[in-house]
Write a protein that binds this DNA or RNA. Structure first.
Lengths: 206, 206
DNA sequence: ATGATGTTTAACAATTTTGTTAATGCAAAT
DNA sequence: ATTTGCATTAACAAAATTGTTAAACATCAT
């Protein structure tokens, strides 16, 4: 009897694939059902509507989405710059293992912003907390002459830009990057190192 | 009698707005027509199908798309780093005046990659030319001890990431950036300067 | 005025897509 | 074995969306 669980699950996974690639508007319930190997009536049986199925996919990914956005300014107990390095690195890794998520999510926010108000409220407050904590540290460190001063939000934007954009643009970049992307793993390593290096140099006192 | 021209034009402009925000799948021909203040039969009269209307929008933007992707590695006659600065700056400006374009285009490429093969072919060859030219310069400059060495493609990815992503993520970021975005113009100036500074420091010999 | 030409409208047709339902199947509990 | 409850199917219905058409309208050159 694990077939029951399995079909419901299968539909959800197929929905995730389809929504991630085609977005809410481009996804077709019949196509999702076909992917899962069931009739489309089954999809409605388990999830009622396309909208509700979509919500289930969002729910399943919401904590990942938040991690994808915010794990880059960290909190572990180390000197500031080391901590930042670790945070950037683990942020990059999260994105690398969910490469479709950022584009999907930005897409949805742009095309149907109303839907995400409550989520944005949460993100807003936790973002502001993080930024002000980090800003205090930056102020201290730069006063002590350890780093160059920067607005924490600007630093955040740079890190997220460097870490997310390559994945968003990957389908586009593949063709023009020659052999750079032939070995995925090695490219990811290089890119991660490059992003860390870029941020470190931005902060280094000269 | 400029009403004739005007309606055809109006439909195209409305289509651009709608396609940019909602993508091909999310856009509705009736909604585009309503935006333009005409019946949807008019839309079909002038552009036959949604697909053809979409193609006209793409055609209208294709050179801009290419500029958006490639004007960041420049060619003017100045010392390398100065030239790079100017290129990053003008690249940023192009994106800033067409903030919806990058997301729209990446979106389309991800959801319907087949459509863009010919365009990708062109981009591929011109990209490779630019990269190899720039790489030669980087090799020279770093051999002379003027800059830190970097793979030209990695440099390109960093520049494009820093310059494009903030615009792609803007609807998302608005809420959590506090007063940073209150004055658009001043934010854009700051951000452009920040991106240039970040790249310059990445290349500066220490 | 007439005819030729392109524009506009309203009504309709076709298709696609989402969602429902009633009947059937199937497995476990009584 | 019968009931109970969920799972499954196929056929159908409703709505949304794209696309067509025939007729009315306007404009301009003759």
């Amino acid at each position: 009897m694990q077939d029951k669980v399995s079909k419901e699950q299968l539909i959800l996974e197929s929905a995730e694939q389809e929504f991630f690639i085609k977005g809410f508007d481009g996804a077709r319930t019949t196509s999702i059902a076909k992917r899962a190997g069931v009739t489309h009536a089954m999809l409605h049986y388990y999830y009622r509507t396309k909208e509700q199925l979509f919500e289930r996919v969002i729910d399943k990914n919401v904590s990942l989405i938040i991690a994808t956005m915010f794990s880059s300014l960290g909190k572990a107990d180390m000197p500031f710059l080391d901590r930042l390095k670790v945070s950037i690195s683990s942020h990059f890794d999260i994105v690398a293992s969910n490469p479709l998520l950022p584009h999907f999510f930005l897409n949805e926010i742009i095309s149907r912003p109303e839907r995400y108000n409550m989520m944005q409220n949460k993100l807003e407050t936790s973002a502001k907390e993080i930024f002000s904590k980090v800003q205090i540290e930056i102020d201290e460190q730069s006063k002590q002459g350890n780093i160059e001063w920067i607005d924490a939000r600007m630093l955040f934007m740079s890190i997220v830009s460097l870490n997310l954009f390559p994945f968003i643009a990957l389908p586009f970049a593949k063709r023009m990057m020659g052999d750079l992307l032939d070995n995925q793993d090695s490219f990811l390593e290089q890119r991660k190192a490059e992003n860390i290096e870029t941020i470190m140099r931005r902060l280094k006192k000269q």
